[in-house]
Amino acid sequence: MEQEPILEVDNLHTHFFTKSGVVKAVDGVSFSVKPGETLGIVGESGSGKSITAMSIMRLIKDPPGKIVEGGLTFKGEDLLAKSEKEMRSIRGDRISMIFQDPMTSLNPVFTVEKQMVETIRAHRNVSKKQAIDRAVELLELVGIPSPRSRLKSYPHEFSGGMRQRVMIALALSCDPEVLIADEPTTALDVTIQAQILELLGRLQKELGMAIVMITHDLGVVAEVCDRVMVMYAGKPVEFAEVTELFDHPKHPYTWGLIGSIPNMENRQERLEAIKGLPPDLRALPEGCSFAPRCKHAMDKCQSKDPDFKEESAGHQVRCLLYEEEEVAVK
């Protein structure tokens, strides 16, 4: 069953023009998501994963930020050609986003009811009463007990997990076709995280939406994603199906990430940390951005920036180790 991708990102470049130089936060990201599929974007702070999400939503503040190159296509429509007004009708309706911190992304001075009704009525031509009924239905869907009375509560009256559920309910209020979840469980405890991930999975099955899951947690990726893109310093360094990525990781950065996680089954003597620090995005090293931290760096890595190439079916990697002459060495 081959489905058409619903969202396509093609060679996206988002740069920030600051006083101290140009920050290439996203520098050549491409991917596509199909309905019902979960795509993971993994990387550490500053790798550009959140800016990728914000770019899709066209939420990059200009100035200083700007999408300088690339294409964003949603169901065949060019998102970059849309006016702000048109984007507003898409955001929260057909493409929705859940943010990491539910405390700062809900408005503290309005009740949940007011915020939900506002969102629903911005996109749907319904009466206030119908909107409230819809809000009750949504809160019930995400598992908030006694939803009708909870609607009158303010965000601070909810616990962290419950607030994240409210955020999800809000994001789902207009049955979006694409849900972008930016670290949706990072601020939560593991038992609550398990609840939220299960909820998202269930809702995805029921509603058939595509999810772009942005996270730094490889455990979350292994659990919920179908395909994964690993990002480093604004660029994708590896892209594969989830089982392929964990079974046959190809990029040294992915090796490092996997080695950095303590293994619960067999305790390692030492964690295989990646040495050094992520680079300054204003002054990226020449050649491969990861070369200064890479155990396998060769001379040519200092000068040549590798291409992002398909190494095996559906598995792309950006590394000179897979240049033809090197394959023989391995």
Partner: peptide, 25 residues
């Protein structure tokens, strides 16, 4: 048991019996 079963592990092959805790602290 619930806490340990809730940890997402970096292993896509592992299907675990998760003990879901209801509600909040």
């Amino acid at each position: 048991q619930a806490l340990l079963s809730a940890i997402p592990e970096a292993n896509p092959h592992k299907k675990r019996d998760r003990i879901m805790l209801e509600g909040d602290l």
